[in-house]
């Protein structure tokens, strides 16, 4: 299990780096799918099989498909990729990269310094999750449904507007 975790973690880090650095949108998107699948594997090794399944189905499946459609509709070509290249000069990315590195370093430091004893992950099955969701978190579920409804309505509205306003 530990080997699987390490492998998945390495894949996740590499593919995420690729997402951030690619110039062609579709390439970046594919790397993002890989990254999400790797994280799903990590979920699985942590004993959260339910979360892993959701990650694959909703993130890597549904949301990424949405991205793919939009990228197709944007009709990006060679020029766009070249322009990305001109935007990615070291002068541009050095500062933000440093900032992010510092933040990640701080988080890593907090993560390492924070735990005294290393405790093994314990498996949490879908039954438990379901009981929690429709028990104490019922209100949160309702809120999430409302949020999704709001997203649905606004996406519909914006999309219709673009079709008409052209």
């Amino acid at each position: 299990m530990n080997a699987l975790f390490t492998l998945a973690a390495i894949v996740a880090v590499i593919s995420t780096t690729m997402v951030v650095t690619r110039t062609v949108a579709v390439h970046a998107l594919l790397y993002l799918v890989v990254s999400l699948l790797a994280v799903a594997t990590v979920f699985f090794t942590l004993g959260a099989a339910f979360a892993a399944a959701l990650e694959v189905i909703i993130y890597a499946g549904a949301i990424m498909i949405l991205f793919v459609f939009v990228v197709m509709m944007l009709n990006l070509d060679r020029d766009d990729a070249d322009r990305e290249n001109t935007w990615l000069t070291p002068r541009v990315w050095a500062g933000p990269a440093l900032l992010s590195a510092v933040l990640a370093g701080e988080l890593l430091y907090a993560g390492i310094a924070g735990h005294g004893t290393i405790v093994a992950a314990r498996e949490v099955g879908p039954v438990q999750v379901g009981l929690a969701l429709f028990g104490p978190y019922l209100l949160a579920v309702e809120l999430a449904s409302l949020l999704l409804l709001a997203g649905l309505i606004s996406a519909y509205h914006l999309g219709r507007d673009s079709g008409r306003g052209g």
């Binding site: 299990m1 975790f5 933000p96 990269a97």
Partner: peptide
């Protein structure tokens, strides 16, 4: 052997930093 969640936390920190870098750079 069971996986230590602490390591997953470290992975999350790294991924978060990469994502942030992406937002700031692109």
């Amino acid at each position: 052997g069971a996986v230590a969640p602490a390591n997953a936390i470290l992975l999350a920190a790294i991924l978060f930093g990469l994502g942030l870098a992406g937002v700031l750079i692109r």
